[in-house]
Design a protein around this nucleic acid. Structure first.
Length: 475
RNA sequence: GGCGCGGUAGCCAAGUGGUAAGGCCGAGGUCUGCAAAACCUCUAUGCGUCGGUUCAAUUCCGACCCGCGCCUCCA
């Protein structure tokens, strides 16, 4: 089934398909700025994009999707951080890049095929090249301090994506935000392509475009340059959070299209914000969570992944700790179903194909409706649990659904179904005694031993042919 | 002020011009010496309010109320 996705530019659902003769679908997702741990709002975008990536691979084939996501490793915030800590910029960005990778792995996000960094000499060169072309073409100009700005008035299509021309700026808003460099620009809406070095930047400076001062690239140009270097002048899909729609993506279009003379991205997709307790996350509200914050509260990363997919990606999703509890339970149910359906002892002979979960994929393919897809998934799974015996194909199809969502089922051990944890020998001894007492129908002793085990932090589950031990649930 | 989005059961959340998916919680049940897990069953005469269009509206139109986001470097 073709994948249809909302396109922010045309504001309608459009089918995704590769445009190049090689049949490779080219897909760019704006990545994080690495100066602090990413928060769960950031991860909503990355998880949604990961599901999209998985769906594209199922549709076009694993080798027919090229997914690029950048790392912004130089900007005001990263430099500020390095200065505050008295460490080199690269130390700071490396550290937070590693953390980002660890979090992504915990959330079971597939690594992008390319993950370019803004300060990589290869892409720095590409950025400078593009700026020089833009200056030559009259789309950019050098400011008195040696910075280079893009001349917004030189691009007649500017504002098509965000409809900025139809907006009315709050009186004074633009001026306020740009007080810092207002003197350098010819027009308030012009934006920086290259920022001249300032003392606050410390040792962080690079040779600039011809005629410009030493300094560092502006934010927007890195994405234009990396796109060009890794995916070409026209890409199939460009994604990010809604907040990037303006000005970031608007500016990317302006730079790339003026420089290359080609359509930049054929399709734009923006996922909505995650709200926490009804509000946008912010430090001042105290509602900003990182993955570690939630893990410290005893939740699993997989539960966060599930919770982030409980709402339609193009609608604001209100995240609460209650929703994480719901996610944790739902995931346990799916995991249990997974093991039952794939247990060789339960499998019966049947058709080679399974279409029970087709509607799940229909939902995902229809504008990435993840909650709609989950709504089709559970009843289809229940049918296999209750009314029909699973076939091998059913098991495979179930796994394909899990792959699309990126859910890793809890293991049997985690579900404590007949598995034995590595309990300390003292605990094992108690369990053995209790099991013997139970077999002897000495229930008073058995119950007393159950209590002893609980006091030691273990719970014992009786099985038909034995018992299992698991750490007592923390509540 | 401008642009945009949303208000569906205790909570989260799909969806449709013909009469409400799913998940969580809760209740009951099967199983179990007990306990837990698992599995099964049940849980909105109603979809912010008031009008309008229609044979029929939660779904279309209008007004209003409430909430949220964006408005130049925040996913």
């Amino acid at each position: 089934m073709p994948i249809r996705l909302h396109d922010s530019l045309s504001r309608e659902l459009r089918e995704l398909k590769p445009s190049q003769p090689d049949g490779v679908f080219r897909f760019y997702n704006c990545g994080p700025t690495v100066y602090a741990p990413a928060h769960i709002g950031n991860f909503r975008t990355f998880v949604v994009n990961d599901v999209l990536r998985r769906l594209l691979e199922l549709e076009f084939g694993a080798g027919k999707v090229k997914h690029v996501r950048n790392l912004t490793d130089v900007d005001d915030k990263t430099i500020q951080r390095a200065r505050d800590e008295g460490r080199p910029l690269a130390d700071v960005t490396t550290r937070w890049t590693e953390k980002f990778h660890a979090d992504c792995a915990a959330l079971n996000c597939l690594p992008p095929h390319e993950e370019p960094r803004a300060t990589d000499p290869r892409y720095l060169r590409e950025q400078v090249n593009m700026i020089e072309v833009l200056m030559d073409k009259g789309n950019a100009y050098r400011a008195p301090d040696g910075s280079v700005y893009f001349k917004v008035s030189s691009f007649k299509d500017y504002g098509r994506l965000s409809r900025v021309k139809e907006r009315e700026l709050q009186p004074g808003a633009a001026l306020k935000a740009h007080a810092a460099d207002a003197d350098e620009k010819e027009d308030g809406s012009d934006f920086a392509l290259w920022k001249a070095w300032k003392p606050d930047d410390g040792p962080n400076k690079w040779p600039g475009p011809k005629g410009a001062a030493e300094g560092r690239p502006g934010w927007h140009i890195e994405c234009s340059a990396m796109n060009k270097a890794l995916l070409g002048e026209t890409i199939d899909l460009h994604t990010g959070g809604v907040d990037l729609l303006f000005p970031h993506h608007e500016n990317e279009i302006a730079q790339s299209e003026c420089c290359n003379g080609q359509t930049f991205a054929r399709h734009w997709y923006h996922s909505e914000h995650l709200l926490v307790d009804g509000k946008k996350m912010s430090k001042s509200l105290g509602n900003l969570y990182t993955l570690d914050d939630l893990v410290a509260k005893g939740f699993s990363p997989m539960a966060l992944r599930y919770a982030l997919l409980m709402g339609h990606p193009r609608k604001q999703l209100n995240f609460t700790l209650d929703s994480l509890h719901a996610a944790e339970s739902a995931l346990a149910t799916l995991s249990s179903n997974f093991h039952t359906i794939n247990d060789p002892r339960n499998i019966v002979a049947g058709p080679e194909e399974c279409h029970r979960f087709d509607e799940v994929f229909d939902q995902l393919s229809d504008d990435l409706n993840t909650p709609g897809a989950l709504g089709k998934f559970f009843p289809a799974a229940r049918e296999l649990m209750a009314t029909v015996k699973p076939t091998k194909a059913d098991g495979g199809a179930f796994q394909r659904v899990l792959f699309a969502f990126g859910f890793q089922p809890l293991s049997l051990k985690q579900l404590a179904k007949g598995a034995v944890y590595d309990a300390p020998s003292g605990v094992t001894a108690l369990a053995e005694k209790r099991w013997a007492a139970k077999l002897a129908k000495d229930y008073a002793t058995a119950d007393a031993l159950r209590k002893e085990l609980a006091a030691a932090g273990w719970s014992m589950a009786d099985r038909k042919d034995g018992y299992s031990l698991e750490p007592a649930k923390k509540s």
